[in-house]
Structures are given as C-alpha cells and as structure tokens.
Amino acid sequence: MFMDLHMHSSYSDGRNTPEEMIEAAAGIGYEAVAITDHVWRTSDWVPAYAAHLEALKERCRPRIRLYSGIEAKVTSLDGDIDADPSFDALVDLILGSIHRIPKTGGYWSKSDREKAKKSEIIGDWLQAFYGLLQNPRVDIIAHPLSELNGFGVRETDLPMAEITDRIAASGKILELNVRYNTPDQQVIRISADKGAVFLISSDSHAVPDLIANSRLVREYMDKEHFRIVDIDRYLSFRTSSSP
C-alpha cells in the first residue's frame, strides 16, 4: 500500500488543515494517510481533534483511508511520553519520538555538545530509547536516531547490535523518516535484517512538503525491501489483544 502515516496539520505546528493535507495526499495517489499531530499532556484539544478525524474518515472513503494519530515526545529516561493516557483510546496510532534527549533533572541541549562527554549523552539517549521501546502505549518509533545528529553522534559511536536486537524484540514499528534519515540508515538496515517492521513516512508539515516528500517515500518503497507493516492487520491484532 502506498501510504504515509506521519504528517501534521494546523492542530499543532502544521500549516494546513487536515482536510487540505488529506486532499493533497489523495491527489498524489496515496492509498492511506495518518494525521499525527504533536501533543502534550496539556493538549485539551485532542478529543475534538480525534472526533474531527473520525468524521473525516467517513467522508474520505473510498478515495483514501484515513487513520488518526498523535506524536508525543519522550520526557524521561524511563521512556515516558508527553501525552495524557486518556488520549490513547481516542486515536488509532501513537508515535513516540525523542525530540530532546532526557537526562537526570532535565534535557541535554546542543550547547552541551562541547562541554559534555559524548558517552554521557549516548548513555542517556540509550536509556530513554530503550524505555521508549518498552512503553506499551507507543506503536511507532518515529525518526529513531535523528536527535543524535545534533550532538555529533554517528553509527560508529553506538552499540548497533544491541540497539537493533532490542528494536526487533520490542515488536514496535520502526519509521524510516525521509526528512530525518541520518544517522538512521544503518540501524534501519540491520533492524530490517532482524525482522523489524517499518513504515516509510514523510513527517510533512504542509502541503508543499507532502508533495515533495512523497517522491522520496515512493523511491524508498520501490528500491528497498523492508518488511512494511500491514497497518490494518496491525490495528486489528492490537485491538483483539487489548485487555
């Protein structure tokens, strides 16, 4: 299925409405999309957002399938996410991402790059990332290594075998994000060899982004042989397995 399950709308930091993003995606030829706006625990607009997307699902059929989602950042070394638990039942998908690397008492900033030991930053990132992999609320790990790039961390600095073993064992969907695919390439290829499932997503924040990025999404789908998740089957299995 030609799909893009990571994009943002004017509900958070996107520049277009959900309707405009969906219409553009349908025009490109996508068979399925998800609107996955950024949330925080205090985002009191999420129920209205989820209801809006639910209504749009009916209007979009059969032209394009629509899924609802949220993207929430990691807030602690334990892999907690910045989303109220009440949001979980309102949407189809939850993306977890590390936008800032947690540390004891706060977050690492880019200004720490010169004065902190790289090993300390990597250690905290690993702890938070492994916590995210174990977080049962999270379906998709978005742009997995992107935040490390700003700290000068490369694949050769990381315990790649351990990371990819844990990704494969977690059962999480790993995202190949066409906007932030460095230094993700090696971890994605090794994880794919170990049986991890993937989405190829654009993380678009506006219609022009979506149009431009769709070419990259198609390119990766055509040239790579990742195990792309069957999203309907995944959601059906997750629902049937819920307590």
Results as ranks from 00 to 15, higher is better:
55 A>W: 13
77 L>P: 01
79 G>L: 07
96 G>K: 13
85 P>M: 08
58 E>T: 11
58 E>R: 13
93 L>D: 08
49 Y>Q: 00
87 F>H: 03
51 A>R: 15
104 T>F: 11
80 D>N: 11
60 C>H: 05
68 S>I: 12
104 T>D: 11
98 I>S: 07
88 D>K: 10
49 Y>L: 08
62 P>Q: 07
52 H>P: 08
106 G>H: 03
59 R>A: 14
57 K>I: 04
62 P>S: 03
74 V>R: 09
86 S>T: 15
50 A>Y: 05
89 A>Q: 14
71 E>Q: 12
91 V>H: 02
110 K>F: 14
95 L>V: 10
104 T>K: 14
66 L>N: 04
80 D>E: 10
49 Y>T: 02
66 L>Q: 06
83 A>I: 00
109 S>L: 13
66 L>W: 03
80 D>A: 07
103 K>E: 07
101 I>D: 01
59 R>L: 15
72 A>F: 03
71 E>H: 15
108 W>E: 11
95 L>A: 12
101 I>V: 05
70 I>R: 10
67 Y>P: 02
52 H>K: 12
46 V>I: 09
85 P>A: 10
74 V>H: 02
63 R>T: 12
104 T>I: 07
54 E>D: 06
77 L>Y: 03
73 K>Q: 06
61 R>V: 11
101 I>E: 06
61 R>F: 08
79 G>R: 10
46 V>C: 10
88 D>P: 09
79 G>N: 14
88 D>I: 15
67 Y>W: 09
55 A>L: 11
71 E>K: 06
70 I>H: 02
110 K>W: 13
100 R>A: 01
99 H>C: 06
77 L>G: 09
107 Y>M: 11
111 S>C: 11
97 S>L: 13
71 E>T: 14
99 H>Y: 06
108 W>T: 04
61 R>M: 13
52 H>E: 07
79 G>S: 11
58 E>V: 07
75 T>D: 01
110 K>H: 08
77 L>T: 12
47 P>S: 13
99 H>R: 14
64 I>H: 02
94 I>F: 00
54 E>H: 03
96 G>F: 06
94 I>Y: 01
66 L>M: 02
83 A>K: 01
99 H>W: 14
82 D>S: 15
94 I>P: 10
80 D>G: 04
103 K>A: 05
65 R>Q: 09
94 I>L: 04
72 A>Y: 04
64 I>E: 00
48 A>L: 12
90 L>S: 10
56 L>Y: 06
63 R>Y: 09
96 G>D: 09
58 E>F: 15
102 P>S: 03
